[in-house]
Design a protein around this nucleic acid. Structure first.
Length: 873
RNA sequence: GCGGACGUGGCGGAACGGUAGACGCAGCGGACUUAAAAUCCGCUUCCCGAAAGGGAGUGUGGGUUCGAUUCCCACCGUCCGCACCA
């Protein structure tokens, strides 16, 4: 038997698909009544190379696309590039390459690599977000949203890297230092552009309920991120002279107005306007405010941060009891951008307030009495009480439970005209300004007379200038006077272009809609988008569970309200796939010291793992020295535990690789790359090919018709199981069933089952494996065609095999018989046999009789076609 | 701290509340081979037993049920998300 040669076979079939244009998308008019199906994988950032994680992601999408195609859907399966972003600028700074050429070179490289995977992608629809044709249209709708009031500028506090002279995202600040420069990050106030995502907070939250084909985990993460809370905004009036502008009092937000009688202090954020005003006049306050701001922003900093407070000397009156005077503090743990930036502290029933009160000697008055606790013995010590109970020490609220107390307090505040029930969101407006070159220019011109003026439609797109230098830190657009200095479109006076560019998450918030017709004149071709959207199956990493997926949902709503599209919810089905992980190998400490290699990671290609009676050890091939086997981690260059797709292609071909990344774990979980695993997939490829290759011409009749019948049953069961597996995203189970099927085909000798049953099985097999291993499937299909005139064309155009329900059902069942829940025997029956007959068979079974000796049968439970359980006493 | 997911052989993992361990990897035995690789056949949860068979078993402890890996409660462990959100 000739060994299957993927190096020869695979390119040949890719060329055949290309030559016939089989993956060209059919428009609605060309669909011939087929229902549409839009499969999309999150498009890649063109970092330079396709890695295994990409490969798994795109192969998964490709399996879905090919499967749906075979099942008669008109499929859209496009690919593009999320091409703006910082790595291109870093490359420019480090290597002197222009971001543009670096990016497009990477795209060329990665496109070629992706094509090797044999993906059923319509490459005619490809675009990159850094194409002016794309980002120019993004500028168009950005201005539309601006006209609709969804875009605004405001001053906000950002992480500023003083060396690189740029804003850093929170993720780019590591232990208070800039991730690139290593300089201490400063908090700076900058005027930034924002998108009003909070206008859609309620809709974004409520509609999560409709996303029944999203993982619960992702919906929950978005729900928490949006963070809706119901409570009361309540004004506290100052005793004596109020700070200017606060004559009506300071507003405080609380979700626990029931505990108002337990208030012992008010606390303002250090960024609260009152705090800032006090700081202007009082150096002590100013110093305190600065001290609060210098705290780190990392998780550990916040967790370990001590509560700091400063008594302002101001006091306010309790809103429900004017005789009670409450001190006003400034406290570092109060956030300015949540609620009103001011809280009331009720130490008895809030952990943070208690810590603060204990530190500064403020009073602690319990007002919620836990059930079955005596009010005289109830004391707050080190822990606040946050559970349910009845209110006491609380005047008109006494005796109410927590929920009733909250409602009553809100009613009273509203009746008194000192507060309103309010909804507060954790979600903030989306800051989209980036002080960077390699991004979509914000199409605005600043004019001293006219303010921020949108660039007129006939002057779009605002194209990035190519002649920029990266020899100095900061945004080169700011020093590019020829580009920056323009006349104001309104008054004709001197104007300056906005030099901020858009967050790259804006680029990825609408690309799926552009794919509907990527050459259309408007940003989104409404007819095409109405046909293709929503994306039926979106596939990507869970790391985008909140940001990208939330932004895309928001932009879809905004663009729908602006009339550009009609689908508010862009992704009907979402699947979050797991990563590709690999064991790590490391030099022992002694060798690390000797070689002055602190990390000492060794790449898998230089490692031999020895398995000695279950004890695994590793040695370095190049030197023969022993290595430590480390944790199994995400493939990464830093740990050197990367297996490059090219290496696999070279030795096993694409199909074996495609099969392996899906076979060893459920798709939502991480898959561990192992040499043995890929070998197993490779063996399967060869076994399959062997079956087709060894099929002779002509027909052979079955020597054992019952064996032929059994193979037919196996075939139809396999079709059903694999179809269900693909439908349910259980690729690993579907593959397991295919292995079983191939084993069964192999076990059925041609003489015994005859050529008809064998051909039927192989014809089904070729089509069932086609989504997974498309090249092999074509080769098999062609081999079948060469031996059977009824089969022709390519398997990519063949319809999905259907199964005969009668054949897919079992002819005979083996029912286990349990005695008191323990399996004691079995009985063979035909499906659907009546309960009484099954019971008789079970009770008359010899093995069962033995187990029933001397016992009384109390009850016999017969579950039809499933099991018999005899209960004895 | 809050929220969520997960915990099954040596390993990856299968099991609409109904035969736990499918399928694969590794391992062991055998065939082919001068030999090896490749391939093929068989065995492979643990304990007792030559076998037939028996017992135990899905993180731990309880509960619901004729029957629980699956449902409920508590605990332990691992991973993920959020995190001073009032």
């Amino acid at each position: 038997m000739a060994r299957y040669n993927p190096k020869e076979v695979e390119p040949r079939w890719r060329a055949a698909w290309d030559a016939q244009g089989v993956f060209r998308t059919r428009t609605a008019d060309e669909a011939e009544g087929k229902p549409k199906y839009y499969v999309l994988e999150m498009f890649p950032y063109p970092s330079g190379n396709i890695h295994m994680g990409h490969a798994r992601n795109y192969v998964m999408g490709d399996v879905v696309a090919r499967f749906k195609r075979a099942r008669g859907f008109n499929v859209l399966h496009p690919m593009g590039w999320d091409a703006f972003g910082m790595p291109a600028e870093n490359a420019a700074m480090e290597r002197g390459v222009h971001p543009k050429s670096w990016t497009y070179q990477n795209i060329d490289n990665m496109r070629a690599q992706l094509k090797l995977l044999g993906l059923s992608i319509d490459w005619d629809r490809e675009f990159a977000t850094c194409d002016p044709a794309y980002y120019g249209r993004q500028q168009r709708w950005f201005l539309d949203l601006m006209r609709r009031g969804l875009v605004y500028r405001k001053e906000s506090v950002v992480n500023w890297d003083p060396v690189d002279q740029t804003v850093l995202a929170n993720e780019q600040v590591v232990d208070g230092l800039g991730w690139r420069s290593g300089a201490p990050v400063e908090k700076r106030k900058l005027t930034q552009w924002f998108l009003r995502i909070t206008d859609y907070a309620d809709d974004l939250l409520e509609s999560l309920k409709t996303l029944d084909r999203w993982p619960d985990k992702v919906r929950l993460m978005q729900e928490n991120w949006i963070g809706k809370s119901r409570g009361l905004k309540l004004r506290w009036s100052f005793t004596g002279v109020a700070p200017e502008g606060y004559e009506n009092g300071v507003e405080v937000y609380t979700t626990r107005p029931d505990t108002l009688y337990g208030a012992s202090f008010l606390a303002l954020s250090p960024d609260h306007p009152i705090a800032e005003r006090l700081a202007a006049d009082d150096p002590t306050v100013a110093e305190f405010v600065v001290r609060c701001r210098t705290g780190g922003t990392s998780e550990a900093d916040i967790e370990g941060a001590e509560k700091l407070g400063l008594d302002t000397g101001l006091t306010v009156r309790h809103p429900f009891d004017p005789d009670r005077i409450v001190p006003v503090w400034i406290a570092n743990f109060v956030l300015m951008d949540y609620g009103t930036g001011a809280i009331f502290g009720c130490p008895a029933h809030d952990e943070r307030d208690l810590e603060f009160a204990r530190k500064y000697g403020l009073s602690v008055t319990p007002v919620v009495l836990p059930p079955d606790v005596d009010s005289t013995s109830f004391k707050i010590e080190d822990e606040p009480y946050t559970g349910p109970g009845r209110l006491f020490n609380s005047a008109f609220l006494d005796g109410l439970d927590v929920d009733a107390g909250i409602a009553a307090a809100i009613d009273r505040a509203e009746a008194d005209g000192i507060g309103e029930g309010a909804t507060v969101w954790r979600l903030r407006d989306w800051g989209v300004s980036r002080q960077r070159y390699w991004g979509c220019p914000i199409p605005v011109i600043h004019c001293e007379a006219c303010g921020a003026v949108p660039v007129p439609a006939d002057q779009l797109p605002v194209v990035l200038p190519d002649d920029v230098s990266f020899d100095r830190p900061g945004n080169p657009l700011m020093r590019h006077d020829a580009w920056r200095k323009v006349t104001c479109p309104e008054c004709g006076g001197p104007g300056e272009r906005e030099t901020d560019t858009l967050d790259t998450f804006v680029d990825s918030s609408w690309y799926f809609a552009r794919f509907a017709d990527p050459k259309a004149e408007p940003p989104i071709d409404k007819t095409a988008a109405d046909y293709w959207l929503p994306v039926d199956q979106y596939i990507g990493g869970v790391e985008h569970a909140v940001l990208h997926l939330l932004y895309a949902r928001f932009v879809s709503r905004a663009l729908t309200d602006a009339g550009d599209m009609s689908v508010r919810e862009p992704f009907a089905g979402l699947f979050t796939q797991g990563m590709v992980v690999h064991e790590t190998y490391r030099l022992p400490e002694e060798a690390r010291l000797r070689l002055n290699d602190q990390k000492g990671w060794i790449e898998p290609t230089d490692v031999e793992v020895i398995n000695d009676a279950g004890n695994r050890s590793a040695k370095r091939i190049s030197t023969g020295e022993p290595l430590l086997i480390g944790d199994i981690e995400k493939m990464s260059k830093s740990k050197k535990n990367v297996v490059a797709p090219e290496e696999i292609l070279d030795s096993y071909g694409v199909d074996a690789g495609r099969l392996f990344v899906l076979s060893d774990s459920p798709p939502e979980r991480d898959v561990q790359w192992t040499p043995g695993g890929i070998e197993g997939s490779w063996r399967f490829v060869n076994r399959v090919w062997g079956e087709f290759e060894s099929l002779p011409q002509g027909s052979i009749s079955a020597s054992d018709p019952s064996a032929a019948d059994a193979l037919r049953r196996t075939t139809h069961k396999a079709i059903k199981a694999v179809t269900d597996g693909f439908d349910g995203f259980r690729f690993n189970s579907a593959i397991a069933r295919l292995y079983e099927f191939v084993n069964a085909i192999k076990a059925a000798s041609l003489e015994t089952v005859g050529s008809d049953a064998k051909r039927e099985a192989l014809s089904a097999l070729a089509r069932l494996i086609a989504p997974l291993v498309p090249h092999l499937a074509e080769e098999c299909w062609a081999a079948l065609g060469a031996r059977n005139t009824e089969i022709g064309g390519m398997v990519v155009d063949a319809p999905w095999p259907s199964y005969d329900a009668a054949l897919a059902a079992d002819e005979e069942l083996v029912l286990p018989i349990q005695v008191n829940g323990k399996r004691r025997g079995e009985v063979r029956v035909r499906p659907g046999l009546g309960e009484g007959e099954v019971e008789q068979l079970a009770l008359s079974d010899e093995a069962i009789k033995r187990h029933l000796e001397g016992l009384t049968v109390r009850k016999v439970i017969v579950v039809k076609d499933r099991i018999v359980n005899i209960v004895v006493g």
